[in-house]
Structure formats: C-alpha cells, structure tokens
Measured scan of single mutants.
Amino acid sequence: MATGGRRGAAAAPLLVAVAALLLGAAGHLYPGEVCPGMDIRNNLTRLHELENCSVIEGHLQILLMFKTRPEDFRDLSFPKLIMITDYLLLFRVYGLESLKDLFPNLTVIRGSRLFFNYALVIFEMVHLKELGLYNLMNITRGSVRIEKNNELCYLATIDWSRILDSVEDNYIVLNKDDNEECGDICPGTAKGKTNCPATVINGQFVERCWTHSHCQKVCPTICKSHGCTAEGLCCHSECLGNCSQPDDPTKCVACRNFYLDGRCVETCPPPYYHFQDWRCVNFSFCQDLHHKCKNSRRQGCHQYVIHNNKCIPECPSGYTMNSSNLLCTPCLGPCPKVCHLLEGEKTIDSVTSAQELRGCTVINGSLIINIRGGNNLAAELEANLGLIEEISGYLKIRRSYALVSLSFFRKLRLIRGETLEIGNYSFYALDNQNLRQLWDWSKHNLTITQGKLFFHYNPKLCLSEIHKMEEVSGTKGRQERNDIALKTNGDQASCENELLKFSYIRTSFDKI
C-alpha cells in the first residue's frame, strides 16, 4: 500500500482533458527560462521544448504516446526543470519506465491550478516501474492521483506527508504495488545497510526511497516546507523545498512566496507586481503582455491589467481597466465587458449561442446573426445582446428569417469595421425574408467608422429604411451602385405612401 494514499474509496472516473512563447529569463536562482504550460502528445517531438525550461508557468501534460519505446527515452533528460506552477499529468506514455532521468531536479509542483483537485496525476502508464522524482520536495496545493499503472512499484516507500501538507485526498490505487509483488529495495538494503531515512506512518517504520538508488530526502521537522541542505541544516524561511546553503534567500532552489532578481522575498516591493503567484514583474512586463494579447485571437491570451499590486489576466467583477495605466478602477454604474472572439468572429444561430455573449459591452471581433427560429426570440436576444455598444469588426445579418427588427441591439452605437466582410463591408444584410426595420432612427444613433453597407434580398425592408441608415451611420456616399439592390429590397412591402385627393359631386333626387 502506498504510504499516505487512500484505498478502496469510491472515486469519480478520471477524465483526461485534452506555445513556446518565453516569458522571460528567471535569473540567477533558476538555471534556465520560464516556459508556458505545455500539452505534449502523440510523439516526442515537442518534448524537446523543455530543454531550457527551469519553470513551467502553467501545467505540463505528457500523454497518448503509443509508439514510443524505452530506448526512445534513454537520452532524454531535462535537468534544468525545477518547478511547475500548476500540475504534472502523465497518461498512456508507452515505453517510459521512470522519471528519474527525465526530470531529475523537479523540486516543486505548486498546484496553482489543479487537474480535478490533483497536482500530480500518473494514470495508465503501462510501462512505468517507478516514479523516480527523487528531488520532489513540495506539492504546495492539491493532491496526488496514481492509478492503474500495472508495473509501478516504489510507492509504499514514499512518505507523501513530507511532500504535501495533507495526504487525506491522495488516491493511489490499482498499481502493481497493490499486489505486494514489488519487493522494493532501498539503497544499501541488499548489503544489509540502512542508507535512507525511515519514518513512521500508520504504525509502520519504513525506509523512504524513490528507487533502488535514490533515497527520499527527509528534512528535520523544524525546517517545515522550506527544505534543508545535504547536511540537514534548514533553508531560509522564504525558500521552498530545498537550498544549497542554509538561511540564505539567494540560495533557495525555489521560493515559498515570490522570486525577485535572484532572491526569494515575502512580497513584491514597489515598483514590482505579483505575477502568477510566484514571481515579481515590473510595469513594462505587464504592459507588454497586455499589448501582445490586445489584437491576438490565441486562446488563453489575456490583456493583463494591474489590481491590488498584482498583474492579473482581467479586472475583477465591479472594476474596469483604465487604459492609460492598466489599473483596475471601480465602475460607475454597470461595468464594461470586452469579449474577445477566439477566431475573430462568432455566429449567433440560437439563443444558446447568444447567451455566451451575455453582459458583453464591447465585441472584439465580428458578429454573424443567422437565426431561423426560436421561442420568445426578441426578448431572449435583447437579454443577451442588448448591452453590446461596440463591435470592432463587422455585423452580418444573414438568412435570419425569424427577425423582424434589429432593435434587440438596443445599445449598439459603434461598428468600427477594423475587419470587413469580403474585404469591403462593415454591415452586411443578406436574404432576411421578414426583416422590416433596422432601428427606430428617431431614437437610435449608430456610427460606422469604416467599410460599406450591403443589402440584398431583404424583400420587406424598404429602401427608405436603408437610406436612413446611410445618413445616420455616416456611410452615405461610400456605397457603390450594386451594394444596395434596388429590386430585391422592399419588393414585397408597401414602401411608397402617396396622399390621394378626392373630389365629389353631391346629387339628390331633384338636383344634379
């Protein structure tokens, strides 16, 4: 039985969820670079991206490699990797027998973001014989899940209580170790020597080791999670996991709180800001991140802002960003909400898709409305799209047979046209069989910064309504002859009103 693990408890099935942008060198404390989270699957090609990484700022997932063999891993080693800020997950990587050479110096898994409450997941690794993470000293947050690894031993010899604050939620089941077939031998045991430290858990006094050649490092209890030197002297209180010299914040392997210019500090002093819960960055760093993602459509890219001495992905609820200094300031009234469309555009074809934009005031991208039916549609669209004030790209209304009016965009005031449909149009209306009105132009103002209007096959939309939009939106004169079809717009509506004058002759039985 794995020490510190839980057996036999019912657990939810383990679901495996399925960018080499360097964020800056980590400095003297770390020998390499800070790398983003990685999802490495199918083959070993991307694994080489770990070569210079000291910190993975995010998670590391290595999974679904069915053609790899043990010899493929023999020359692979990433000794610079010290810390993973989120979680480490391995799933069905064939041929991998140990992690001792792959990650010989991995010391800390912070667990800032977890995989279903777990910071370390080893699942269905069919050839893994031992973990071998002999320098792993601290899992700051989260638990361990090690399950269905039929060859995995050296679990009962690990004292997880020396690595985690609590072992109650560890789930370590259905491994070879369960069948008591392992016969784990710690260093020196074969020669009758006791080389590794022994600890007591559940009444068992057991030597602690990761492999037959690597003991588990056990520091004096007084050192807590700070770690200790090879001689057993406690590291500085700002260290986490390990250090090369005692009581020196510049000799830590990793930091308990924050890293700044080669030393570990309790908090980031001005003019620095907390970033990702582990390091200090200056304003320029946060500003660069903001600008890199301002026009990016890459998933996970955030326009970072500053709030409460932190550089964070977005302002919290009730705050909006001051564009001059990136500071989050309290909103006066309802907060603006910028919604970034991942692929640059979004099609609204149902109430469900409209709900995804609920509360958005600025759309960074283009909207395509293609709704053919739905219950209580006008009210639903207004509830979900009615706060949109600005669209950076274009607005396209296409084959939306259920629409009679666009009044559900009740606050839309600006279409920038930074991206144009077919390279020309910022407003595009095609084949809307029941569209009769755009907006009530006596109450609604709309500016279209650039781009043209396109109207074709809107049989109940009168040309007068379209011409009014040209005047109000500032697009009059931009359109070419064929942009607004004269014969297919309003051709099934009563669009022309003329005053009919009647004269009559009164007659009676005795007068003409």
Results as ranks from 00 to 15, higher is better:
residue 28 H to T: 08
residue 29 L to A: 10
residue 32 G to V: 13
residue 33 E to V: 06
residue 34 V to M: 15
residue 34 V to A: 15
residue 36 P to V: 05
residue 36 P to F: 13
residue 37 G to C: 02
residue 38 M to F: 02
residue 38 M to G: 03
residue 41 R to P: 15
residue 42 N to A: 09
residue 44 L to E: 10
residue 45 T to W: 14
residue 46 R to P: 05
residue 46 R to Y: 05
residue 47 L to V: 05
residue 48 H to F: 07
residue 48 H to W: 07
residue 49 E to I: 13
residue 50 L to F: 05
residue 50 L to R: 02
residue 56 I to R: 08
residue 57 E to S: 09
residue 57 E to F: 03
residue 59 H to E: 03
residue 59 H to W: 05
residue 61 Q to R: 13
residue 62 I to P: 00
residue 63 L to T: 07
residue 65 M to Y: 15
residue 66 F to G: 09
residue 66 F to Q: 06
residue 68 T to V: 08
residue 69 R to C: 12
residue 70 P to F: 07
residue 70 P to H: 10
residue 73 F to K: 04
residue 74 R to D: 06
residue 74 R to F: 07
residue 74 R to H: 14
residue 75 D to Y: 15
residue 77 S to T: 13
residue 79 P to D: 05
residue 80 K to R: 10
residue 82 I to A: 08
residue 82 I to W: 10
residue 85 T to H: 04
residue 85 T to Y: 02
residue 87 Y to V: 00
residue 87 Y to P: 04
residue 88 L to T: 00
residue 88 L to Q: 00
residue 89 L to R: 02
residue 89 L to A: 02
residue 92 R to Q: 08
residue 92 R to S: 06
residue 96 L to I: 08
residue 96 L to C: 10
residue 96 L to W: 02
residue 98 S to M: 02
residue 98 S to C: 04
residue 99 L to S: 01
residue 99 L to E: 00
residue 100 K to L: 10
residue 100 K to I: 05
residue 102 L to Q: 01
residue 104 P to H: 00
residue 104 P to M: 01
residue 104 P to K: 01
residue 105 N to T: 03
residue 106 L to Q: 00
residue 106 L to R: 00
residue 107 T to H: 10
residue 108 V to N: 15
residue 110 R to A: 09
residue 111 G to A: 03
residue 115 F to R: 05
residue 115 F to C: 06
residue 117 N to T: 03
residue 117 N to W: 09
residue 118 Y to P: 00
residue 118 Y to S: 09
residue 118 Y to K: 06
residue 119 A to M: 00
residue 120 L to N: 02
residue 121 V to A: 06
residue 121 V to I: 08
residue 121 V to L: 03
residue 122 I to D: 00
residue 122 I to A: 08
residue 123 F to S: 15
residue 124 E to Y: 12
residue 124 E to H: 14
residue 127 H to R: 03
residue 127 H to T: 13
residue 127 H to A: 12
residue 128 L to T: 03
residue 131 L to W: 01
residue 131 L to F: 10
residue 132 G to F: 01
residue 133 L to M: 04
residue 134 Y to P: 06
residue 135 N to H: 06
residue 138 N to L: 11
residue 138 N to G: 09
residue 138 N to H: 08
residue 139 I to V: 08
residue 139 I to K: 01
residue 140 T to E: 08
residue 141 R to Q: 15
residue 142 G to F: 01
residue 143 S to T: 04
residue 143 S to F: 08
residue 143 S to E: 07
residue 143 S to Q: 14
residue 143 S to K: 13
residue 144 V to N: 02
residue 146 I to C: 05
residue 146 I to N: 01
residue 148 K to T: 03
residue 150 N to L: 09
residue 153 C to S: 09
residue 153 C to I: 01
residue 154 Y to N: 06
residue 155 L to M: 12
residue 155 L to N: 14
residue 158 I to Q: 07
residue 160 W to F: 13
residue 162 R to Q: 14
residue 162 R to V: 08
residue 162 R to I: 05
residue 162 R to D: 08
residue 163 I to E: 01
residue 163 I to K: 02
residue 164 L to N: 05
residue 164 L to S: 10
residue 164 L to M: 14
residue 164 L to G: 15
residue 166 S to Y: 09
residue 168 E to Y: 06
residue 170 N to T: 07
residue 172 I to L: 15
residue 172 I to H: 04
residue 173 V to L: 15
residue 174 L to K: 15
residue 176 K to E: 09
residue 176 K to R: 08
residue 176 K to W: 09
residue 177 D to V: 07
residue 177 D to Q: 07
residue 177 D to L: 10
residue 177 D to W: 11
residue 178 D to G: 15
residue 178 D to A: 14
residue 179 N to S: 06
residue 179 N to F: 06
residue 181 E to L: 01
residue 182 C to S: 14
residue 182 C to D: 15
residue 184 D to F: 06
residue 184 D to G: 15
residue 185 I to V: 15
residue 186 C to R: 03
residue 187 P to T: 11
residue 187 P to N: 15
residue 187 P to E: 14
residue 188 G to D: 10
residue 189 T to C: 10
residue 189 T to Y: 04
residue 190 A to F: 08
residue 190 A to M: 04
residue 191 K to E: 09
residue 191 K to H: 03
residue 192 G to S: 13
residue 192 G to C: 13
residue 194 T to N: 14
residue 195 N to A: 12
residue 195 N to W: 12
residue 197 P to N: 15
residue 199 T to L: 11
residue 201 I to E: 11
residue 201 I to S: 15
residue 202 N to Y: 11
residue 204 Q to T: 05
residue 204 Q to S: 05
residue 205 F to R: 02
residue 206 V to K: 10
residue 206 V to P: 15
residue 210 W to S: 09
residue 211 T to N: 10
residue 213 S to P: 13
residue 215 C to Y: 11
residue 215 C to W: 15
residue 216 Q to C: 11
residue 216 Q to T: 13
residue 218 V to F: 13
residue 218 V to P: 11
residue 218 V to A: 09
residue 219 C to V: 04
residue 222 I to Q: 07
residue 223 C to S: 04
residue 223 C to R: 02
residue 223 C to H: 03
residue 225 S to E: 03
residue 226 H to G: 11
residue 228 C to W: 01
residue 230 A to S: 14
residue 231 E to L: 07
residue 232 G to Q: 05
residue 235 C to T: 00
residue 236 H to E: 06
residue 237 S to N: 14
residue 238 E to P: 01
residue 238 E to L: 04
residue 238 E to D: 11
residue 239 C to R: 00
residue 240 L to I: 07
residue 240 L to S: 04
residue 241 G to D: 02
residue 241 G to I: 02
residue 243 C to T: 00
residue 244 S to W: 10
residue 245 Q to F: 07
residue 245 Q to T: 05
residue 245 Q to W: 09
residue 246 P to A: 14
residue 248 D to P: 01
residue 248 D to A: 04
residue 249 P to K: 00
residue 249 P to T: 06
residue 249 P to Y: 01
residue 251 K to Y: 14
residue 252 C to Q: 00
residue 254 A to S: 07
residue 255 C to F: 00
residue 255 C to K: 01
residue 255 C to N: 01
residue 256 R to T: 11
residue 258 F to A: 06
residue 260 L to T: 05
residue 262 G to M: 06
residue 263 R to W: 00
residue 265 V to T: 05
residue 265 V to G: 01
residue 265 V to K: 00
residue 268 C to V: 00
residue 269 P to G: 01
residue 271 P to K: 03
residue 273 Y to D: 01
residue 274 H to S: 15
residue 275 F to G: 01
residue 276 Q to H: 02
residue 277 D to I: 04
residue 279 R to E: 02
residue 280 C to P: 00
residue 281 V to K: 01
residue 281 V to P: 01
residue 281 V to I: 12
residue 283 F to E: 08
residue 283 F to H: 10
residue 286 C to W: 00
residue 286 C to L: 01
residue 288 D to F: 07
residue 290 H to T: 09
residue 295 N to E: 08
residue 296 S to Q: 15
residue 297 R to M: 09
residue 297 R to D: 15
residue 297 R to Q: 11
residue 297 R to L: 06
residue 297 R to Y: 02
residue 298 R to W: 11
residue 298 R to C: 13
residue 299 Q to F: 07
residue 299 Q to M: 08
residue 302 H to F: 04
residue 302 H to P: 07
residue 302 H to M: 05
residue 304 Y to F: 15
residue 305 V to N: 03
residue 305 V to K: 08
residue 305 V to A: 11
residue 306 I to P: 02
residue 306 I to F: 14
residue 309 N to T: 09
residue 309 N to D: 07
residue 309 N to G: 13
residue 310 K to L: 06
residue 311 C to I: 02
residue 312 I to Q: 04
residue 314 E to K: 12
residue 315 C to K: 00
residue 317 S to F: 15
residue 317 S to G: 09
residue 320 T to G: 05
residue 321 M to L: 02
residue 323 S to R: 05
residue 323 S to T: 11
residue 324 S to G: 10
residue 327 L to K: 15
residue 327 L to T: 06
residue 331 C to N: 06
residue 331 C to V: 14
residue 332 L to G: 15
residue 333 G to Q: 06
residue 335 C to P: 07
residue 335 C to V: 03
residue 336 P to T: 04
